[in-house]
Amino acid sequence: MEILSVLLEWGPYLLGGIAITLGLTISALALGFCLGLPLALGQVYGSRPVRSLIAVYVWFFRGLPTLILLFLFYFGVFPALGLDFSAFVIGATVLGLRGAAYQSQIFRAGIQSVAEGQMTAALSLGMTRWEAVQCIIIPQALRISLPGWSNEYPELLTDSAVCYAIGVAELMTRTSQIVSVTYMTMPIYIACALIFIALNYGGMRVIRKAEERFAIPGFGGKAVQP
């Protein structure tokens, strides 16, 4: 089996690619969360101008293809701002900004589905609006949003392969490099596909486990099938 010896020979290089792919995915997921939650809060509780501004942000980042966003930031925006970041940082940033737009919609739905009475009850206890949002609304909204939020992981994982286009040395890029050196096309592509599928499946198992741990009786955190 030639493919096995090739994979063995290039194993460490591919493993590095897997690490970078996961790095892209996880940083984008984290950035998307840190930005997506405030965006969602702004869209629900913000003043009119804030809400419109966020709506434009969401419309922009959800309406554009990942590839265009990568090109725009890699060739256009970052150089124009005089920022000289690595392709990895730009890739993770773009995926994160885009993810924030998607995540904000998941969180917004979660916040809006927390019963009206919860806020009223919190205010009647003497909490301020902000305290109520912080201690009562967000903890519930996050749990409600969790199943939808977990589906961002496979999205971002497969999307991260597009970072090939700006030369991030992730799994996809390294796969093409190995193909061009070894001239073994199909077996290596298929191996790469299987790695992505395994990362997808393995990651989802971890997330589902986490979901179970955070589950609270009565919060039907029913997992959506991956």
């Binding site: 496979p154 392969a161 199909m186 592509y189 596909a193 992505f196």
Partner: peptide, 16 residues
């Protein structure tokens, strides 16, 4: 669903 679309396109165009 698990295979990135870009990779799928590569398989079809460069692999086949």
């Amino acid at each position: 669903k698990g295979c990135p679309l870009l990779l799928l396109l590569f398989i079809l165009y460069f692999g086949l």
